[in-house]
Amino acid sequence: MNSLLLIIVGGVLVNNFVMSKFLGICAFLGVSKKTETALGMGMAVTFVMAIASLFTYLVQHYLLIPLHLEYMQTIAFILIIAVLVQSVEMVLKKTSRSLYLALGVYLPLITTNCAVLGVAINNTTAVEGGYNLIQSVVNGTAGALGFTLAIVAFAAIRERLEIGNMPKWMDGFPGALIGAGLMSIAFQGFSGLIH
């Protein structure tokens, strides 16, 4: 139980995927102009990352390791994620219209979100022998919640920047990146939480 709590605090705050591990930066910079879209993206990523952690765990421990195919990990994991994203999209379309409308547009983008592949690999390397099933799913969910926290906060900052009086030469990516840097400094403050 204690270790799960550590994983959650670590994933959301201390080792935040975006702010300290630089995973999912493309989505972080690309889909953060408005808080609503940022929240939608965050929720879609959370959904996919939790399921992807589960499936990659099963494949790693019941397929790749017994067959001594660990070197196929990258190919296997990225294919699982691609298939998963596609099927989540299809299932949502058939079963939950409202959820599909909310998350649908973000789903195709998630296949190439490195946070998803990153967490799947991280689950197998974080501790000797990798996390167990529950720890993997918790780690995936916590990491994705951390991503959501970072992208929503960043979108809020960017909304303010839009109406603020930014120097012209800082417009666009340079200003956004420096803003993200300042935010990252704030996140560094969490690093004292666990040792």
């Binding site: 702010m19 300290s20 591990k21 630089f22 030469w169 800082m170 990516f173 340079p174 200003g175 956004a176 990146l177 420096i178 993200a180 840097g181 300042l182 990252s184 400094i185 996140f187 560094q188």
Partner: peptide
């Protein structure tokens, strides 16, 4: 040390992009 910590990455890339854009 902050430059090789994560915040430094964002800030230095932002500044470099500024220079290149200019």
């Amino acid at each position: 040390a902050i430059i090789i910590r994560p915040p430094g990455g964002f800030i230095m890339l932002g500044l470099l992009l500024l220079v290149v854009n200019a």
